[in-house]
């Protein structure tokens, strides 16, 4: 039972950061949703705002870390081109070249042409949206409870950030299963 350096890294990129992102999203969403004046005491507002601040900034930072490490470390492994001597139509020769392995077979080509092509781009929208939300929470602090329109907008952006990251994460998991970076 062992993991290569690349497998270990993909676990860190997808599983560890992905799990942190999910946790931060769940906490942030619950915090934003329940931050209503009728629902919280003044002491509760201070405590909840602190938690919301942590949740939203963790989500934003994790989102940036995930796209940066994914794009500049894992992606080059994925798209590495085989030497000329390798037959790019023969899947048995392409285990170390995931992009070419997927494209070599009709049944897997769409994982690259649709899945990876979407994932590699849409993921970058998540940190921008999550950072805007974290900024709004930091800027207003406990005053956010009196700014319902901004809280609702933050909920929408937060959910869109999760959607973008979710698309990327889901395709990442499927693509890694079809053609692991090893």
């Amino acid at each position: 039972m062992e993991l290569t350096d690349r497998e270990l890294y993909t676990v860190l990129h997808g599983l560890v950061l992905g799990t942190l992102f999910l946790l931060a999203f769940a906490g942030g969403l619950a915090g934003l949703w329940s931050l209503g004046e009728r629902l919280v005491t003044p002491e509760g507002v201070v405590e909840r705002t602190r938690r919301l601040l942590i949740g939203t900034w963790v989500m934003a930072i994790v989102a940036w870390l995930t796209v940066l490490t994914g794009t500049f470390i894992a992606y080059p492994w994925y798209r590495a081109a085989p030497p000329e001597a390798v037959d790019t139509t023969d899947p048995s020769q392409l285990a170390e070249y995931p992009r070419y392995l997927l494209l070599a077979q009709e049944k897997t080509a769409q994982w690259h042409e649709f899945g990876m092509e979407w994932k590699e781009h849409v993921a970058w929208i998540a940190p921008m949206l999550a950072t805007a939300v974290a900024f709004a929470v930091a800027y207003y602090g406990v005053q956010l409870i009196r700014r319902g329109e901004i809280r609702r907008a933050a909920l929408v952006f937060f959910t869109l950030a999760f959607l973008a990251a979710g698309i990327a994460g889901l395709f990442g998991a499927f693509i890694t299963k079809a053609a692991p970076v090893a």
Binding site: L129, F135, A136, Y139, Q143
Partner: peptide
């Protein structure tokens, strides 16, 4: 609203996220 900061900076942050997304696209 009473005792809250003006919303311009938050509007700027939200709009900038939109600009970044569009430029990427």
């Amino acid at each position: 609203p009473a005792e809250t900061k003006p919303n311009g900076p938050v509007a700027a942050a939200f709009l900038a996220a939109g600009v970044g997304s569009l430029v990427l696209g």
